[in-house]
């Protein structure tokens, strides 16, 4: 499996220290339920979905999510986060196949 495309978005783009900002994390993932059939081969497509998502900010766990297959294809996870100095926001996500990926974004508050 190749690396999956993912994206972390922070709104608003310019933020100050101590501000509460919106954080969205998007992944390109098929999120197969295991109930869909291939139209040509008539075989059931095996289950494949994201199990676990973890948001970490400067090594401190902010939000953890336990995910099941009924989330949409290419899921989006949006929450709020309090900016607390410079650092890294790291998102780690695990697949039901055991594939672990991560994505990080630098946090640079201004003012």
């Amino acid at each position: 499996m190749g690396k999956r495309k993912s994206l972390i978005k922070i709104k608003p783009k310019k933020y100050k220290d101590g501000e509460v900002v919106k954080v969205s994390f998007m992944v390109m993932h098929p999120m197969e339920t295991g109930m869909r059939k291939d139209k040509k081969t008539k075989k059931v497509i095996p289950m494949l979905y994201i199990n676990d998502v973890k948001f970490e900010y400067n090594g401190k766990v902010i939000t953890t999510m336990k995910v099941w297959e009924s989330l949409s294809v290419n899921p989006v996870f949006t929450t709020y986060m309090k900016i607390n100095g410079k650092g890294d926001l790291k998102v780690t996500y695990t697949d039901s196949s055991g594939e672990v990926n991560e994505k990080s974004k630098k946090i640079k508050p201004k003012g």
Binding site: V20, Y57, K60, I62, T63, L71, S72, P75, V76, F77, T78, T79, Y80, M81, K82, N84
Partner: peptide, 9 residues
């Protein structure tokens, strides 16, 4: 640390 209790998906 979330600051606001909101979740969207």
């Amino acid at each position: 640390a979330n600051g606001k209790a909101m979740f969207s998906t």
